[in-house]
Every structure is written in C-alpha cells, then in structure tokens.
C-alpha cells in the first residue's frame, strides 16, 4: 500500500488539471477547424432541413 497525502493530491489536481484543460482545448479546436472536416459539418448543418421523413433503409 502506498500512501497518497492530501497535499500530493491537491498539488496534482492544481497542476495537471490545468494541463489537461489546455490539452483538451487544443484537441477540440483542432477538430473543429481541421480542413477536411468542413465538408461533413456543412452536410450535417443542412441535412436536418431536408423534408425527407423516412429512415434510409
């Protein structure tokens, strides 16, 4: 059994939490602005307005 002290946990939460946040943010921005994703976003955006009311099957 190893002991985790309160200070260690707090320090971990305070430092790595921030890095996690920044890393996560960068990934999301990359995904949103990735050039090849543009086409599928535009499709998704407009496809819900189709008057179609049947499953594709």
């Amino acid at each position: 059994m190893f002991e985790i002290s309160h200070e260690t946990l707090v320090a971990f939460a305070k430092s790595w939490g921030l890095f996690y946040l920044m890393g996560f943010f960068l990934c999301v921005v990359a995904y949103a602005f990735w050039p090849s994703n543009r086409k599928r976003f535009d499709r998704a955006k407009t496809s819900i307005l189709d008057r179609e009311d049947k499953p594709w099957k």
Partner: peptide
Amino acid sequence: AAASVGGIVEIAPLFTIDET
C-alpha cells in the same frame, strides 16, 4: 473523459480531507 476529470480533480482530494 471531459466530464469526469473535473469531478475527480475536485473531489479526489476530499477523500484525504480528514488529514486537514
């Protein structure tokens, strides 16, 4: 992954809070 980390970071230290 996105949702749990906030809870873990905030709540995990409270498990050792009896030290404080």
